[in-house]
Design a binder for these strands. Structure first.
Lengths: 117, 117
DNA sequence: GACAGCGTGTACTAAGTAGTATACACTACA
DNA sequence: TGTAGTGTATACTACTTAGTACACGCTGTC
């Protein structure tokens, strides 16, 4: 059920069509793992790699690191750290916004950025 | 450096002063671990236990589970799941609110709750 | 027909996670 | 003085994480 692997494979194959350096071997070297390991990851034979490697993979594939981490079942450590620094606050925020539609949440974010609070 | 253990120990000792059932042994049984393990955790000889045990501990000690999890270096799995379901959105929210003072964040959350968005 | 490059199968490992089980020494108390 | 309860030391274990190292067979090409 690991959609992470097939997602990466699909994305990589697409890029490989127009750029031969997106072979398993070469991409693996670029993100700092052994080719056989990336191969196993793509086929879901092994769980997704560490946060660091997933982020490197995201950058190579031109994907959003947070999205790829999510597919890997992870949450970026900088987000976790922000939550751990003010656990009550962020727990409240996240649980409150959990079921609020994207549009509404984005409006809030924009207002914060514009200093309208 | 593990503040988690000493924090738990202090809370437990405080409760034990007026309730003898807050011994290492009895509390350990209530949260579902061996007494020797809780002892080691409190002395920082072993890293904090699993999320499940930390939550049980928080409830027994009358503490906020999210706060105790934060001390354990963890983030509640339900929060992680919420983030993983909409990674771009929540990554934006958290990074945007990271340096915003509590007061302001709380006001925003209240406005959301009151449907002022 | 050799050589480069490809994807993958197999075997292995070092470190971390999350504890259990048992025994020991000490204190209170009846 | 025995026994109930306390905290802890020691030894051990099963599972997971996060990979490496190497070899194999296939394909294209020069």
């Amino acid at each position: 059920m690991s959609s992470f692997g097939s997602y990466v494979r699909e994305r990589r194959e697409r890029l490989k069509a127009s750029d031969a350096t997106f072979s398993v071997r070469q991409l693996a070297v670029r993100i700092g793992v052994e080719p056989s390991f990336l191969s196993k990851v793509e086929r879901g034979e092994t769980p997704p790699p560490s946060e660091e490697k997933v982020k490197a993979l995201a950058i190579e594939l031109g994907e959003d690191p947070d999205v790829l981490l999510a597919l890997a079942g992870k949450v970026s450590s900088d987000l976790q750290e922000a939550i751990r620094k003010r656990p009550e606050l962020f727990a409240a925020v996240i649980r409150e916004l959990k079921d609020v539609p994207d549009q509404a949440v984005l409006r809030i974010v924009r207002e914060v950025r514009d200093g309208k609070w």
